[in-house]
Structures are given as structure tokens and as C-alpha cells.
């Protein structure tokens, strides 16, 4: 709030104390620490890898070196075009994170307000929104995403958009149930009694207090989205060759599984580690933010 800048100094001091407490609670949670460690490592790789390896170099075919098994020169081996798997796997980190973050950003940007509206308004609005979401959810996500990309064209960004749309109902559901319980709180009624507009109550009173499960949902959805994007690429509906996307790399490896298993192992490991990182972090954060868990942060703040 712009008007509150005068007390910003105090608020900051106070915020810092709260963040310190949150940080301590997270530190005490092994799952969150390991998950966060993995995520941070991946972020560093995503930032650093394009500086060290150029994408052109990674896409450079070298037919003499095809199917080279892991060695000092090519620690992860080479693929059927003789491209270095290490560079390609490392560049894949960036694509995976991009896919995960952007699709979840799209899903939450639409799903959270919709779910909040449904939960806060209730009644017919709730029914209308949630039944629509139910219809969307009744199809397997990957099938819907495939249909969408098949219609709008198979590119990486379209795959991201499709995944974003597919995950909207999950965010709407989580947000709605939390918004319902927050709306029961008396501070929401107090705000209404003060004459606050509904939009203010929804966005400033209800949703900020519904954040915890949404954060958890987001971090777990990122891993699902990465997995699904890999699946789409694998089916040829996501990133197109020669993009170093893990899903695409797996698809190519499929034909040579016995001949050059490293082509499948390293991108697969990449996916597994990334998914594990976000899942662990999501799980850990849930424990930390859960008001029923007897962590200090949960007790004092939720």
C-alpha cells in the first residue's frame, strides 16, 4: 500500500523477523532443504549452461562420433548424430524449467482468481465455475494438451500454453476450497461491514490468506508440467528438433535403447531429478505452512 511507506522501515524490520522464522522452519525440514538445494542447483545450471555451451555447438552434428559411449571427451556419450549428450542435457535444464514455470504461471494466473471467486461468491457463481472446471478435469490432462497442441500447432510455446490451460482446474480447486474456509473468517465479514468492495475483499483479504496451499500446488504442478512437456515432446507435439529438450532426446533414444542406452539415461535422469526437486520442495513447504503441523511458523502465522 502506497500510503504505508512512512512505516516501511518498521515493517521491513518486522518482515525480516518473519522471514527469518520462515527460513528457520524450512531449514528444519529436510525435504524442503533437499528440494530447494536441487532446485537452486538446476537454476544455476540453467543460467550458467548457455554461457559455457552455445546451442549451435550442441546442435552441431558430427557423424563420425555417433553413438560414442561415455568417455573423458564425452562424459555422457554422444547421440545418433554424434552430438555431445552432456551439453544437450545441460541445455535441457533451461528448457525444462522454462516449461514448468511458465505453464504453472499461466495456470495459476487464471485458476487462482477463478477459484477464489467461486469460493468467495459461492452459490450460482461457484456452481458455474466449478462445473466447468469439472468438465475440464474429466479428461486426462495429457490428452487435452495433445489435442490443443495438435490443433494450434506443435511448438514448445504452444505446448506450454496447452499445459497451462490443462492445469487451470487444479489451481481453481485448491484455491476455491481454501477461499471458502478463509471466507468464513470474521475478518472477511469485518471488511464487508466496513463497506469494502467485493473485489478488494477477494484479492486483498481472502487470497493472500489462501496462499499456502496454492504455493504447494504450484511447486508440485511444476514437476507435473515438466513431465507432461517431456511427454508431449516425446510424442512430437512439443519442442521440435533440434531443440535440446529432454523429452525430444528420449524420443530419439527410443530407437537405439540397446545400442546406446546413455542417450536415454541422462535426459531421463534430468527429468527425474528435476521432478524430485520440485516434489520434495512442495512436500516440505506443505509441512512448513500447514497450520496443523506443529512447526513454529505454522503455529504463529497461519
Amino acid at each position: 500500500m502506497a500510503a504505508e511507506t512512512g512505516t516501511a522501515r518498521f515493517v521491513d524490520e518486522y518482515q525480516r523477523e518473519r522471514l527469518r522464522r520462515l527460513a528457520r522452519a524450512i531449514r528444519h525440514n529436510t525435504k524442503a532443504v533437499v528440494g530447494l538445494g536441487i532446485i537452486l542447483g538446476l537454476v544455476v545450471l540453467a543460467v550458467a549452461s548457455p554461457m559455457l555451451i552455445s546451442e549451435e555447438a550442441a546442435n552441431q552434428m558430427n557423424v563420425q562420433d555417433r553413438f560414442a559411449s561415455p568417455s573423458a571427451e564425452h562424459p555422457f556419450g554422444t547421440d545418433n548424430f554424434g552430438r555431445d549428450m552432456l551439453s544437450r542435457t545441460l541445455l535441457g535444464v533451461r528448457i525444462s524449467l522454462y516449461v514448468g514455470l511458465v505453464s504453472v504461471a499461466i495456470a495459476s494466473a487464471v485458476g487462482v482468481p477463478l477459484g477464489g471467486l467461486a469460493g468467495y461468491a459461492g452459490g450460482a457463481v461457484d456452481d458455474a465455475v466449478m462445473r466447468t472446471m469439472d468438465v475440464l478435469m474429466s479428461f486426462p490432462p495429457i490428452l487435452v494438451a495433445m489435442t490443443i497442441t495438435a490443433v494450434i500447432g506443435p511448438t514448445l510455446n504452444n505446448a506450454i500454453l496447452a499445459l497451462g490451460l490443462v492445469y487451470i482446474p487444479y489451481f481453481a480447486r485448491v484455491t476455491r476450497s481454501e477461499a471458502i474456509s478463509v471466507s468464513q473468517e470474521e475478518f472477511v465479514e469485518a471488511a464487508q461491514a466496513l463497506g469494502e468492495r467485493d473485489s478488494y475483499v477477494l484479492f486483498r483479504e481472502v487470497l493472500p490468506n489462501a496462499a499456502a496451499p496454492i504455493i504447494v500446488q504450484a511447486s508440485i504442478s511444476i514437476s507435473f508440467a515438466i513431465l507432461a512437456a517431456a511427454g508431449l515432446s516425446f510424442l512430437g507435439l512439443g519442442a521440435q528438433p533440434p531443440t535440446p529438450s529432454w523429452g525430444l532426446m528420449l524420443q530419439q533414444a527410443k530407437q537405439y535403447l540397446t545400442q546406446a542406452p546413455w542417450m536415454a539415461i541422462f535426459p531421463g535422469l534430468g527429468i527425474a531429478v528435476t521432478v524430485l526437486g520440485f516434489n520434495l520442495f512442495g512436500d516440505g513447504i506443505r509441512d512448513v505452512l500447514d497450520p496443523d503441523a506443529s512447526t513454529e511458523f505454522g503455529v504463529t502465522d497461519e
Binding site: E186, A193, E205, P208
Partner: peptide
């Protein structure tokens, strides 16, 4: 609403914790 105010039973719940 300016003139009609309300104080609720449960102060933990009637103040936005954030």
C-alpha cells in the same frame, strides 16, 4: 457502514493475520 460498525467474538479470526 461508516456509522454502523461491528466487533466480533473471536479477535484471532476478525483481524487479517497478514
Amino acid at each position: 457502514r461508516r456509522d454502523l460498525q461491528v466487533v466480533f467474538q473471536n479477535p484471532q479470526s476478525s483481524l487479517n493475520p497478514r
